Computed example of a mutant assay.
Amino acid sequence: MKEFERKQLLERVNREAATVGAAIPETIEVQGEEVDLQEFVFEIKRRETVPTGERERVERAKRNLRRERLERLQRIEDGEVSYAEGERLAESIVGIDRALNALEALGPADLEREAEAQEAADRKRWMKFLRKALGNEDTSHNTRGRP
């Protein structure tokens, strides 16, 4: 592969909008294992939130995808592959990025929502406890001004 071709491929995979319009690969070999990537991502995205039991599986998949992306990128950077192989690697890197974007979009937003819900529930329990402890079970506001 020529130097300008290598730079062109690297620019393509590192472009900010590289994943726009890109498809998630149906299958991909990650760490020597064939993965039904498209099915996995769509299965996880179908849910409103990632269930607690699935979080570790999703985090492990993201780590493996990042590692695989880095290895493929390194092969292009080293320039030890043909241009055709480099193009194939670049396309797969963009597909991996697309899958990672989809999986990352689930993570923090769901965790934030869960944390907010947990905090609201904690506040509600705390207020109920205080009202009960202080003997103010009545939550109506009509008790002001009464002795």
Rank of each mutant, 00 (worst) to 15 (best):
M1P: 07
M1N: 07
M1S: 03
E3Y: 05
E3F: 09
F4M: 13
E5R: 08
R6F: 09
K7V: 09
K7C: 12
K7T: 08
Q8H: 06
L10Q: 10
V13R: 02
N14Q: 10
N14A: 08
E16N: 14
E16A: 12
A17Q: 12
A18G: 09
A18I: 02
A18M: 04
A18K: 09
T19Y: 03
V20L: 14
G21F: 04
G21A: 09
A22P: 05
A22Q: 03
A23E: 13
A23F: 09
P25F: 01
E26H: 08
E26L: 08
V30S: 00
Q31I: 00
Q31F: 00
E34C: 03
D36V: 00
D36P: 02
D36R: 01
L37D: 02
L37E: 00
Q38P: 06
E39N: 05
F40M: 03
F42Y: 02
E43W: 06
E43A: 04
T52S: 14
E54G: 04
R55N: 11
R57M: 08
E59Q: 15
E59G: 09
K62N: 12
K62C: 13
R63M: 00
R66T: 10
R66H: 07
R66Q: 15
R67A: 04
E68R: 00
R69K: 11
R69S: 06
L70Q: 09
E71R: 01
E71V: 04
R72K: 04
Q74L: 02
R75I: 05
R75L: 08
I76L: 04
I76K: 02
E77D: 08
G79S: 05
E80C: 14
E80W: 10
V81C: 06
Y83T: 11
G86W: 02
E87N: 07
E87T: 04
R88K: 10
L89M: 05
E91L: 06
S92F: 04
S92T: 07
I93C: 03
I96G: 00
I96Y: 01
D97Y: 07
D97C: 06
R98H: 09
A99V: 05
A99N: 05
N101A: 09
A102I: 01
A102V: 06
A102C: 01
A102P: 05
L103S: 02
L103Q: 00
L103I: 06
L103C: 08
L103V: 06
E104Y: 10
L106R: 10
L106K: 12
G107F: 08
A109C: 09
A115I: 07
E116I: 11
Q118F: 13
E119N: 15
E119D: 13
A121R: 11
D122G: 13
R123L: 09
R123A: 12
R125A: 13
R125V: 08
W126F: 15
M127K: 12
K128H: 13
F129L: 13
R131Y: 08
K132I: 11
A133Q: 10
L134D: 14
L134M: 11
G135K: 10
N136C: 15
D138R: 07
T139V: 15
S140R: 06
N142G: 12
T143I: 11
T143Q: 15
G145Y: 07
G145W: 05
G145D: 06
